[in-house]
């Protein structure tokens, strides 16, 4: 510390520091400033008593208010559920068409559906619902099990190939693996399926496979290969391929005959949740 210096014009002692000729006066603080400090200390002590404050070996001092953010979150969630009650109740009574047409119900279903889809469906169908190999695209206008509101609701509720009552059961046979067809027949059939989607194919092979298709495939896929939505049989003429469009992918599917599984969501969700999800998917798809 430097020696005591008095500022000439004001007669006030300075701190003794000097910057470029500017000195700082050492005026006393106003008393209320001190009181504010004491008040802060008092407030801190009150806080210790009221709120969780001091850590210990096995937890912490809970404070007499027993404030807990965890408890508050649970409480808030319950409140939120009660708040949503009105709209949720309307979802229960309104038909799917009414929900989609009414601006308020639609907005509620879309918001709820988006969250539900992200949490439950996006894992397989993708965040945007565009699917992937083995998982159907839900945004276009090609549907395995039907794209109307009621059909979508049914598919979500019962699922696909889960073994639960109501769920779809049809399965493509593994023509190659189970040696139902010979390798040459499968090669010809592959060409036939390529030709169905209006792509250039080996004419001789297509001609050879015509009878095989009529015998083995037409029962499910139809004589023209247009599929059947009531049984989840894909349309082979629409240019959409669940397991890939290349000759190798088509041949692989004829050999191994895979079929995807979708959970029975009716066991996990209540009907109005499924309704919200249905409207969300239908509204975002190339609706039917």
């Amino acid at each position: 510390m430097s020696e005591r210096k008095i500022d000439e014009p004001t007669g006030v002692e300075t701190t003794g520091h000097e910057w470029d000729g500017i000195r700082e006066l050492d005026n006393p603080l106003p008393r209320w400033w001190l009181w504010t400090w004491y008040a802060s200390i008092a407030a801190a002590i009150v806080y210790w008593v009221l709120m969780p404050a001091w850590p210990g070996l096995h937890g912490f001092t809970p404070g007499i208010l027993h404030q807990s953010d965890r408890v508050k979150v649970v409480h808030d969630l319950a409140e939120l559920k009660a708040l949503r009650g009105a709209e949720a109740a309307q979802l229960q009574t309104a038909s799917l068409e009414e929900i989609e047409r009414d601006p308020k119900l639609q907005a509620y279903a879309m918001a709820a559906g988006q969250a539900l889809f992200g949490d439950n469906c996006a894992t397989c169908h993708g965040q945007g619902g565009t699917g992937g190999k083995g998982y159907p695209n839900l945004r276009d206008d090609v549907w395995l099990w039907g794209g109307s509101l009621e059909q979508i609701q049914h598919t979500i509720t019962y699922g696909v190939r889960t073994g639960e009552p109501g769920a779809g059961v049809t399965l493509m046979p593994a023509f190659g693996r189970d040696q139902m067809l010979k390798d040459g027949q499968i090669d010809d059939l592959t060409e036939y399926v390529v030709a169905l989607s209006r792509r250039p194919a080996n004419r001789a092979a297509v001609a050879r496979a015509t009878q095989v298709f009529a015998e083995q495939c037409a029962a499910c896929h139809g004589p023209e290969g247009r599929g059947d939505q009531t049984k989840g049989v894909p349309n082979l003429t629409d240019g959409e391929w669940l397991y890939g469009s290349s000759r190798e992918a088509i041949r692989d599917q004829i050999v191994n005959g895979r079929g995807g599984v979708m959970p029975t969501w009716g066991k996990r969700f209540d009907p109005q949740t499924i309704k919200a999800l249905t409207v969300y998917i239908h509204a975002n798809a190339g609706g039917q």
């Binding site: 004001t10 006030v12 006393p28 603080l29």
Partner: peptide, 15 residues
Amino acid sequence: VRAKAARGGGLYQPR
């Protein structure tokens, strides 16, 4: 206030 401070009013200044 100034007169009191000049006499050595302490660290804090009463109003």
